[in-house]
């Protein structure tokens, strides 16, 4: 059953009561919250995700709720709980949905150490996956959203998940997190995109999430091999040209963007070194999305 098939009132009731077990990529997350923002966000942005059957195993049991004490009422706040433990400081109540997103990212980056988890977006076309690593603010989510809006498959935003078993990328299509000016830019570039509420004054500025395409979510169990690593950077005077980069240098860039690289240790190095052997690597400075998408399409045109 998909989230969208659940009437909104039921969704709200389930979230406030027994909770909702949501399948996303490699994990099942059990979510509880009586906050309407959380229900609305899930209903809008996770409509194509499926619900897990009752009585199974959930990887994470999370809850979004007001903190104990006065801040329940006075300048209300929200806390993220993983099994009663709260890893973060509370945030203003209005940021409940972004907090769920950040909390889920934290769960995955902290507790899936049979995978190397990198700070990167991943898009795919056919069975060719492209890793887009990059520092926050480099413009990888924007580029990812633009590509996805033009028919690329959303593999994962925010984190690339590489299995230690077989070196394959594991899909995790969740809402794409867009910040500040990017929100406007993507709304213009992909007018049909479903965009969640804009949350102002978060620690990352204004944040809004774009709903992942139904097709990407449907294929969330199909892993793929990385074939390209492209490190994007938005620059107003960027020429939108793919500049080849050495594999060794790009491997180090992946390592620098590792969430749990130091935890996984030597095995992680071996898996990433194997991964990079199969990849062509580029740096990519882009100024406008139209030519950026064209450059990516051209990259893969050589594949056929």
């Amino acid at each position: 059953m998909r989230v969208a098939e659940l009437p909104p009132a039921d969704l709200r009731r389930r979230l406030a009561g027994p909770g909702l077990a949501l399948r996303t990529g490699p994990v099942t997350v059990h979510i509880r919250s009586a906050l309407p923002d959380v229900a609305d966000g899930l209903s809008l942005l996770y409509g194509d995700h499926s619900l897990a059957r009752e009585g199974g195993f959930c990887d994470f049991h999370v809850r979004l709720a007001p903190p104990p004490g006065l801040r329940r009422w006075f300048r209300p706040q929200v806390c993220f709980y993983l099994d009663g433990h709260t890893p973060f400081k509370p945030l203003p109540r209005s940021q409940a949905f972004p907090m769920l997103e950040w909390g889920l990212n934290w769960c995955m980056a902290s507790f899936l150490n049979r995978h190397v988890i990198l700070h990167a977006a991943v898009v795919a076309r056919g069975d060719v996956a492209v890793i887009l690593p990059g520092a926050p603010g480099a413009g990888k989510s924007t580029l990812c959203a633009a590509l996805v809006g033009r028919g690329w498959r959303l593999f994962s935003d925010e984190m690339a998940i590489v299995s230690l078993e077989d070196g394959q990328l594991v899909p995790n299509p969740r809402p794409v997190s867009l910040k500040n000016e990017s929100i406007r830019v993507i709304q213009d570039f992909v007018p049909e995109a479903v965009m969640g509420e804009a949350h102002v004054d978060t620690r990352k500025g204004t944040v809004a999430h774009m709903k992942p395409p139904a097709e990407s979510v449907r294929r969330a169990q199909e892993s793929a091999r990385a074939r390209y690593v492209v490190m994007p950077r938005y620059r107003p005077q960027g020429e939108g040209v793919m500049v080849p980069e050495g594999r060794a240098a790009m491997l180090m860039a992946l390592v620098d963007n590792g969430f749990n690289y130091s935890v996984v240790g030597a095995e992680g190095f071996r898996v990433l070194a194997d991964l990079i052997e199969d990849c062509r690597c580029f740096r990519f400075e882009y100024a406008d999305l139209e030519s950026a998408v064209a450059a990516f399409d051209a990259l893969l045109a050589g594949e056929a």
Binding site: T28, G56, F57, D59, F111, L112, N113, R114, S262, V263, V264, G265
Partner: peptide, 21 residues
């Protein structure tokens, strides 16, 4: 151990080894 919980047991072992280092 079924595969789903095994993921978490193994992840915890990896984490413990990292801390040992």
């Amino acid at each position: 151990v079924p595969p789903a919980p095994l993921v978490h047991l193994e992840s915890a072992r990896v984490y413990a080894r990292a801390q040992q280092r």
